[in-house]
Simulated assay, not measured.
Amino acid sequence: MIQQNQRSFSAGQMMATPDVLHQIPEYEVQRALARHLAGDWGDCCQEDAGANDAALQTGGRLFSVYHTADGITFWIITEADRSATTVLLPENY
């Protein structure tokens, strides 16, 4: 498991979908991005968390799940080549 509060990979270009920009407060997005970049995968299932931990070694895609204080679920995905990290709602996938 990656030690939290330790940046473990490059985020590349950071993007967010229009729905995220309209529905989620910026401070909640920023907090989740900090967690994602520290290797805290949020509320993703154990299988996805394990895949993320392996992807840090092998270069695969990274996927995290977070929830706002109002209960909105959103995802953060970093591409396998680390060129981009996108914040999106599940329905935007």
Rank of each mutant, 00 (worst) to 15 (best):
E91V: 08
R35F: 07
I77R: 08
L62G: 06
M14A: 10
S10H: 12
F9T: 03
F9H: 05
V87F: 01
R61N: 12
P25C: 00
S10T: 10
T73H: 13
A54T: 14
G50H: 12
R31V: 11
A34Y: 05
T58S: 15
E47V: 10
V87E: 02
T73P: 09
M15S: 10
Q30M: 13
V87M: 04
L56Q: 11
L56G: 05
A32M: 05
G71M: 14
F74E: 08
G50M: 07
S64L: 06
R31Y: 15
Y27W: 10
A51R: 11
N52E: 02
C44D: 06
Q6M: 05
A11K: 03
T68I: 09
A16D: 04
A80K: 15
R61I: 13
V87I: 15
M14H: 04
A11P: 05
A38T: 00
E26L: 13
G39T: 00
A84P: 04
Y27V: 12
F9D: 03
A38D: 11
Y27C: 11
D53T: 08
G50S: 07
V87N: 01
D43S: 12
M14N: 02
Q23N: 08
T17R: 03
Q57R: 10
W41Q: 06
Q30D: 10
A80W: 11
Q6T: 00
A38M: 02
N92Y: 10
D81K: 14
G59S: 06
D40L: 01
G50Q: 13
D70Q: 15
Q6W: 00
N5K: 08
R35W: 07
I76K: 06
P90I: 06
T73Y: 10
V65P: 03
P25G: 03
A16W: 00
W75E: 13
V20K: 01
L88P: 09
Y66V: 11
T17K: 02
L88N: 08
E91M: 04
A51W: 06
S64R: 10
Y93Q: 13
P18L: 04
H22K: 05
Q30Y: 07
T78E: 15
A54C: 06
E79P: 02
P90S: 11
C44H: 04
R61E: 15
L56D: 05
S64Q: 09
E28R: 06
L37Y: 00
A16H: 04
A16F: 02
Q46N: 08
A32Q: 07
Q30N: 12
T73A: 12
D40N: 09
D40I: 05
A69T: 14
N52A: 08
R31S: 15
E91Q: 14
T85Q: 03
D53Y: 04
W75P: 09
V29S: 03
Q57G: 08
H36A: 00
F74V: 10
I72V: 14
F74P: 10
H67K: 10
D19Y: 02
T17Y: 00
A34G: 09
F9S: 02
Q13W: 07
I72K: 09
S10D: 14
T58C: 07
L37W: 00
D40M: 03
Q30F: 06
G42R: 02
Y93W: 13
